Simulated assay, not measured.
Amino acid sequence: MKIYTSMPAGLVPYFQESLEIYRIEFEAGNLGKAWNHLENAHIIGQRYPYTHTCVHLEMLLFGIKIKSYREIIGQIPRLVLGGVKSFVGKVPLGNPGGADVPPLKPFPIKKGIQEIFEKAGIKQ
């Protein structure tokens, strides 16, 4: 079993950029675009406990800000368990992390994100 701890340095700028664009789009009122970047950050960071947990916290806060009870309720178990699953390497790769998708279902990784992993030398 592979134990994951911290995000590789090659992924950090892409993860941070996704979160920054999320914040910019949210502040501009572009909720759909904001959410897409939050999902991207989730896919990039889901293997690593700290980043995985941080994204689920952001998703929970997003749900609170837009008053989406479904997202709030859906994010609570993801927030509690996501980092643990990352630590032991048991995450559904490509899963965008929102409450609108099954939490354990893997998804195909988006082409742009796959390119990020390739640039960073990360095999999926």
Rank of each mutant, 00 (worst) to 15 (best):
I122M: 05
G45N: 07
M59A: 14
H56I: 05
P49Q: 08
G45Y: 03
I24M: 02
I44Q: 09
G121L: 08
G74N: 10
N40K: 13
V80Q: 02
Y50I: 09
G112V: 06
P106T: 08
Y14Q: 04
Q114R: 13
E17M: 03
R47W: 13
L104D: 15
Q114D: 15
A9L: 12
Q16Y: 00
T51E: 15
V12H: 07
S86A: 15
E58M: 09
G97D: 14
L61D: 08
K67W: 09
E71F: 04
A99V: 01
I21R: 09
L57D: 01
L38N: 04
A120N: 10
Q46F: 08
F26T: 05
G83K: 07
P102G: 05
A9V: 10
L104C: 08
G89M: 09
L79I: 07
L38Y: 02
E71C: 05
I73P: 02
I21D: 01
A34I: 03
I72V: 15
I122F: 02
I24A: 01
V101P: 01
I3M: 14
F107R: 00
P103K: 05
I66S: 01
I66M: 13
A120G: 11
Y4S: 10
E25M: 08
L104N: 14
P49K: 06
E17K: 13
K33T: 13
G32S: 13
G121C: 07
I21P: 01
T51Y: 12
H42E: 09
L61S: 05
L93M: 14
F117G: 04
W35E: 10
G45F: 02
Q75Y: 07
G97N: 11
A28V: 00
I66Q: 12
E25N: 06
H37M: 08
I72Y: 09
F26G: 10
F117P: 07
V88N: 02
H42F: 10
Y4F: 14
A9W: 00
K111I: 01
G82S: 03
E39F: 03
I122P: 00
K90H: 11
H52P: 02
S6I: 08
V91G: 04
G89I: 06
F107C: 04
P77M: 05
P103F: 10
T53M: 13
C54D: 11
E27Q: 15
E25V: 00
K33I: 12
G82R: 00
V84I: 15
F15G: 00
I72C: 09
E39Y: 09
V101Q: 06
I3K: 13
V101G: 01
S18Q: 06
P92S: 14
I73Q: 04
